[in-house]
């Protein structure tokens, strides 16, 4: 069975629902403490949402120094699947595993609401079960989610098709489609191989029909399946 490690930093607060989404997708989920120096043979790793170390400095700025991050980097360098959700995305950017940065929302306020995001590619570790161009509605909840990067990086991201999720307008909505002022409406990006992935929305929070929608569940079924393929290969 594919084993997915969910890292708990002090201040992480989305680990329970993230573990549950992995289990629902048929994976074996493992909670790993930030002080651990290895990933207990996990095939993939998720850095979950929350406020690591309170995020009193800059989101993710301290978490990148946590002991477990060496093992996360090693897994990423070896081509393993590394997924950062919200605070996890911020940590991946701070750790330079993904380019760019997440700044305070343009409107200077925390934003918690559903957003409509388009799946820009499905050849990554966590989007294989979606169609390219499919638009799904899942929640965001963050104070620092405005994706920024220098023009060269943005150009490269677009040219290399490394924008994974993009905020898009949908008919009938009276909210701005981009909830935080992210450049190029970027909600999530990945590395060239599609193995290191980070995004702001929270698919794990809308991954069960009883909540009215399971639009986010395929992130986890994709991850469990792709990591399994990798292990087999």
């Amino acid at each position: 069975m594919t084993c997915v490690a969910v890292i708990r930093f002090p201040g992480s607060n989305c680990e329970a629902e993230t573990l549950a989404a992995v289990v629902r997708a048929g994976g074996d989920a493992l909670l790993v403490d930030y002080r651990d120096t290895h990933l207990h043979h996990a095939d993939a790793v998720i850095l979950p949402g929350g406020f690591a170390y309170g995020d009193y400095l800059r989101s993710g700025a301290i978490a990148r120094f946590a002991p477990v991050m060496q093992a996360v980097k090693a897994l990423a360098d070896a081509g393993g699947a590394v997924v950062g959700i919200c605070n996890g995305f911020q940590v991946l950017c701070e750790a330079r595993l993904l380019p760019g940065a997440l700044q305070r929302n343009a409107q200077q306020r925390f934003v918690s609401r559903p957003v409509d995001v388009r799946i820009e590619r499905n050849d990554t570790v966590c989007t294989a079960d979606y169609d390219v161009g499919e638009v799904i509605r899942i929640p965001v909840a963050h104070g620092e989610g405005r994706y920024v990067a220098d023009p060269a990086t943005l150009t490269a991201l677009e040219a290399e098709h490394r924008v994974l999720l993009r905020y898009v307008p949908v008919a009938g909505s009276d909210l701005p489609h981009n909830p935080n002022g992210s450049l190029h409406d970027i909600a999530g990006i990945c590395n060239a191989a599609g193995t290191v992935v980070g995004f702001m929305p929270h698919p794990e929070r809308l991954a069960d029909r009883v909540l009215g929608s399971d639009a986010g569940q395929r992130f986890f079924s994709s991850l469990v399946r792709s990591a399994r393929v990798e292990v087999a290969a």
Partner: peptide, 27 residues
């Protein structure tokens, strides 16, 4: 107001704010 409050963390919110009452699924 409630756009500034996280309404979905913990993944159990069946009815987030905006209706008559909030409803939560017990995991």
């Amino acid at each position: 107001v409630f756009e500034q409050y996280d309404g979905t963390v913990r993944g159990g919110s069946v009815m987030p704010p905006g209706g008559d009452a909030g409803v939560l699924r017990v995991a």
